[in-house]
Structure formats: structure tokens, C-alpha cells
Design a protein around this nucleic acid. Structure first.
Lengths: 334, 334
DNA sequence: GAATGGAATCGAAGCGCTTCGACAGTCTCG
DNA sequence: CGAGACTGTCGAAGCGCTTCGATTCCATTC
């Protein structure tokens, strides 16, 4: 293994000088810097992560807690994960993958043994049970999702309340008077997943404000559940002409089910989906969507946590404003 | 921070004794062990990962290289990832998530800076370009997938050749004479993804042996592509009564497309899918499948790499035998 | 009863790095 | 021209752990 001492010898300087070249924490003459850098390259030197962590109490690793559930749409989760990894690398950090199945002890272990400098948590519930542990960790934490009481922890997420409002307003503006929401799986609501409740409240609240008839149904990700759910919508409100789908997993099934029933999109019924942008274009009708900005959220989470690590920022709650992308799945009511 | 010295003082022994209690590398009297363990618990001691790595040259971290592509089915990827994480934790290891976008340098960096002890690689191509780098790393590597020339690297995967054979045999045994394969996206084949080619060869080879008429088509994950693909199948072979779908992303769409055309499953056409077991039951007809054993593969990959780390095993190629689960989507030809 | 060997423990060295204080040399300015 | 400030570099300490003798104590064995 190539050590800092090898580089120092090769460049004719001391080890500390090499360290300062690398960290930039003290000024170095241009000539020395050049020599050291060329030695580093020539020898293929990479600082030993453990040694560095030991000496500096910084690992340059972020821990990311991902959900193992399957009722939450996996491709969406994966988008967050990759955006976090990508952003982390830009700030010279790596990402350690954690699941919840070790429970709070897993978090304590990672924090106490200094495997990671900070922790990012996905799949946040409204009454998030992990908050006490996370607070006790004495490390920066960013929640991807917003619990009812963030308790001094950083949070970042799409503003799902506003997103729902945006959907309803769009449909109302187009003249639709009976609207329906097909939401996430019942299990998602039961668990109190933070974004689900926020969206639902935004939906019903705005529908009420705009004086629309509205109904909302959760929907499990199965063929039968979708069928049943669509049944319920038209049973509740036969004249429903505006549909908001907040459930990526059943989106395709809902569309083909509408088709099967002879309801044309957007002629007979307008559909707004809440999903990642690139998902919207993979259907026969490019969908009008409120995008889930996984990339922005992931990147922002990383930036927030890095700034906290640098002591340059206090915890804060950031809600991203929703953007509606007009597709061909919504049209004025006829 | 609680250090080993704190524990030692608390238990009235030396630091090295605490270390030996933890590692079990020397014998310790029952009494001492008890005292040390209770001190550890009382003080909430967790060994500092960096210090440990420095002293022992072992990080207890496995790096996992995941694909960012979306033409490969994300939920399947995620299943592998979670099974790797879960298995790794059982062997007291954590998982560092790597993507390919740093290229070979990323691998070198992780290996040279001793961030991880070993590397697991997903999304392996037939002519895997990363093999030279991986070999130069001087660390255990396990490929999840089998390249044409593994070159002394460990590999583990489902035996896709045998899996295809199993599908075709099943259909042939049921009396079907014209069979078709709907395979992964064209981009997957173009890239030379290892499992795609192996499956395709298994399909055509076995169909030939069993004297069946067979055709195979790749299929992009879009509504139009599925439609076109199904068109092609029945244009090529109007009497096709056996269909193998090796493309999780379009499975649902293919089924509804068949339905749309009035081809009942399994009455008019038998369908065998290659997908994770739990995915098979989420359709209106529980599918006959050859399961992709993500859990077994992920766990096996971890076990192989751990055994190599312990010096207890040499690199090897492990192909898991396919298992066919009879569902309700296949029936004798009428 | 001296020699042998095993069990249990300790002390010290060392893993590769960062960081602090010291110092020599060079500038700047009154 | 000497005090003071700044620049660039070095040496040494120390981060928390593992591991290699060395040591002590006891039980065997002939």
C-alpha cells in the first residue's frame, strides 16, 4: 500500500506537507504543490480512509436509511437513492446503505462507531417513531419527508399539500366539477406515511375551497384493487370527469381500466398523475403530472447535511414547490 | 466518545483484554468476559470503525456497484440490493453503495483507500469491460451475473440458460407447438447484458431440440412497443399458443394486451414469466413462473465474498438451478 | 520437586493520517 | 535597520484500535 510517507519521500517533503497539499488547510508554494501532486499521481496514492477518519473524525460517508417496504413504489425510492449517491459523490462523500430491520440499534451503531458522519432518512411517517433516536445521535440528520413534528431535525420534501392543490386547481380551472383521488395503498395511510396524509388533506381542502364534489380512495397495487377502486369512484360520483392519481404503481392499470370501460382520456375524463417526470411519458397518452422531483430532493438533502457538517447551517424544513407539467391527459370539460 | 480504554478502566482490565473479548482471538476467563461485557453494555461502547480499520486492515464494509440504468427492471435490482444488505448485516458487514458513473476510478478509489474490503458488482455484461480493473484491485470481487470469461473472478447468478430451457420444456410438455419469447428491451441486448443472451440462447436452443416453432422479440418498456411486439409475435406465428415473457417491466402490459385482443390466458395462450416470485401473484391470473431468486443470489454473493475474505475459499462460478412455479397462466394446448 | 505447558492477562508498538506548535526565511513599514 | 507579520515547511503527538511477544500463575508430568 502507498502511504503518505511514500509520497512525502518521493516528493522530498514531509508527510505533513503532503497532508496540507491535500487538504488545502495551509498555504503551500506552487513548486511544492506541483511536486507533491505529481508524486501522488505517479505512485497512485489514495489516503487510507480509516486512518483519515481516525485522525480527523470525519469519514466522508453519509448513511442513507431506505425503506424495504413494497407498498411504496420502488422505482421512486430508487430515484431518490441514486440522486443521493450522485450528489454525495460531488461533495466527495460516499453513501452507506442502511435498512430499518436493525431498528434503532442500527442507527446507534452507525453513529457511535463513526462509520458515517451524518444520516439521511427516507420513508418518514407523520408520527415518526425514529425521531428520539435520531436526536440522540449527535450527528446531522436530514429526513426526506416531513413528520408532523420535525423537532429540530432537518427535513426536505415536495410540498405535497400544495401539489394536491395544484392538481385540483388545474382540474377546476378546466371546468371539472366532480373530481376523485386515487391514492396510495391503504397500508401507506394506515402507517401514517407523511406524504400521503399531506396530499389527501391538500386534495379535499382545495376541492372544498373550489366547491367541487370530491371523493378519495386508497388503492392497493393489484389488478382487482384498481378495478374496485375505479368502481367506487363512479359509484360515488357517476359524473366524475377529473381524476388525480397519486399512486405510481397503479397508474398504468388505472389507465387501461378506464379504457376498458370506454372512458377516453382526456375526452371523457381528465387524469392528473403525481409521479416522476420521466414516468409520465411512458404511457400511450403523455400524462399531465405534478412531478415528484426526486433529483432535486435527493440533492438538496445531501447539500443540507453537508452544510450542517461544515457547521455552516442549522436544521431547517424545506418544502419544494410543485410544478405542473401539462400533458395530453387533461382537457376542458365538455 | 466511549473508547476501549474507558471500558478497560471500568472493567479493571487492560485494553488488549477488552479487544480479545470482542474478537475472541484469545481465551478469556468467564469472569473477565462477563465484567467486560457488562462494562461495554453499561457504557454503550461501540468500537471506532476507523481505528479498527486502521489497526486490523478490515473495514467490515462491502461495496456494491448498482446500475443506474432504467432499462433493467428497477424493482428487481432493488430486491438484490436489499438481500445483499440483509445478508451482509448477518455477517456483521455494512454495504457501501457505488454507481458506475465514476467509472473504473471509482473502483480504484474505493479499493485503494480501503473504504471497503470487497466488491460486489451487479449488471454484468457478456464482455464485461470492468474485469481488468476488478482484477487489479487485489480484493475479493463477486459478480452478480456471469460474463463470457469470468477470468478468475467469482460469479453468481440464476442459470438463465437452464431457466429458458425450463420454460420451453414446460410449454412443450403441455403440447404447445408454436412458442414465442418476449425478451428484455433492445438496449439490454445491444449492451450485451449477460443474462439476456444466455436466456435467449437457452430459449432458441431448447425450442429447436423440442422441434417447436419459435420466435423471439425484444421489447422496450412502453405501451406502443408492447403492442408492436405482440403484433410481431402473431404475424410471425399466428398459431402461437405458448408465450415466455422475460421482461418484468412489460409483463402487465403484455397480459392486458392479450386480453384486449381476446386471447384468454391460459385458455387460448399459455404464459410463462421470468420474474421474482412475489411479482407473479400480483396479476389477475397468478402466473406460472421461473422465479428469479434475488434473495438467494444476493445472500450467496455475500457468503462467497465473506469466505474469500476469510481466506477460506477460492473464486468460483455458481449458477443456481431454476425452479418453475406452476400458476394458472399455463394449460395444455387445446 | 524441577521441568513443561497451557491459560489468562498485560504492555507496547504500530496502523496512516491530521494538526498543532515551532521555526527559518522573506517582506513590509515606520 | 529592526520589529512585526506573513509564508512555507517540518517534527511530533495523538486519534482508538489490534496484535505480538512477554509474563505470571497453575496444573501436569516424570
Amino acid at each position: 500500500m502507498v502511504t503518505i510517507a511514500d509520497v512525502a519521500r518521493d516528493a522530498g517533503v514531509s508527510a505533513s506537507t503532503v497532508s496540507y497539499v491535500l487538504s488545502g488547510k495551509r498555504s503551500i508554494s506552487a513548486d511544492t504543490r506541483r511536486r507533491v501532486e505529481s508524486s501522488i499521481r505517479r505512485l497512485g496514492y489514495h489516503p487510507h480512509a480509516g486512518a483519515r477518519a481516525l485522525a480527523s473524525s470525519r469519514t466522508n460517508v453519509l448513511a442513507l436509511v431506505v425503506p424495504l417496504r413494497t407498498d411504496i413504489h420502488v422505482p421512486v425510492v430508487m430515484r431518490f437513492v441514486t440522486s443521493v449517491v450522485t450528489a454525495a459523490r460531488e461533495y466527495d462523500h460516499d453513501v452507506l446503505l442502511l435498512t430499518n430491520d436493525e431498528g434503532p440499534d442500527g442507527l446507534r451503531r452507525v453513529a457511535a462507531s463513526a462509520i458515517a458522519d451524518a444520516i439521511l432518512v427516507m420513508d418518514v411517517e407523520a408520527e415518526e417513531p425514529r425521531i428520539p433516536v435520531l436526536q440522540s445521535l449527535l450527528r446531522p440528520v436530514v429526513l426526506i419527508g416531513v413528520p408532523d413534528d420535525p423537532a429540530e431535525l432537518s427535513c426536505v420534501d415536495l410540498d405535497f399539500h400544495a401539489a394536491a392543490a395544484r392538481c385540483v386547481d388545474h382540474l377546476a380551472d378546466l371546468g371539472h366539477e366532480q373530481v376523485a383521488l386515487i391514492g396510495p395503498s391503504p397500508t401507506v395511510y394506515e402507517r401514517g406515511t407523511s406524504f400521503a396524509g399531506r396530499f389527501l388533506r391538500g386534495f379535499t381542502g382545495t376541492a372544498h375551497e373550489r366547491a367541487l364534489h370530491a371523493c378519495a380512495h386508497s388503492c392497493a397495487p393489484s389488478y382487482e384493487a384498481v378495478r374496485e377502486c375505479v368502481d367506487k369512484v363512479f359509484a360515488d360520483q357517476p359524473e366524475t370527469t377529473g381524476l388525480v392519481v397519486h399512486n405510481e404503481a397503479v397508474l398504468g392499470t388505472v389507465l387501461s381500466e378506464l379504457q376498458r370501460r370506454g372512458r377516453r382520456v382526456p375526452d371523457d375524463i381528465s387524469v392528473v398523475a403525481v409521479c416522476p417526470e420521466d414516468m409520465a411519458v411512458s404511457f400511450s397518452v403523455p400524462l399531465t403530472t405534478v412531478a415528484i422531483p426526486s433529483n432535486d430532493v435527493g440533492r438538496l438533502a445531501v447539500e443540507m447535511v453537508i452544510r450542517q457538517l461544515d457547521g455552516a447551517a442549522a436544521p431547517e424544513v424545506r418544502l419544494l414547490s410543485p410544478r405542473l407539467n401539462q400533458g395530453h391527459s387533461t382537457a376542458p370539460r365538455r
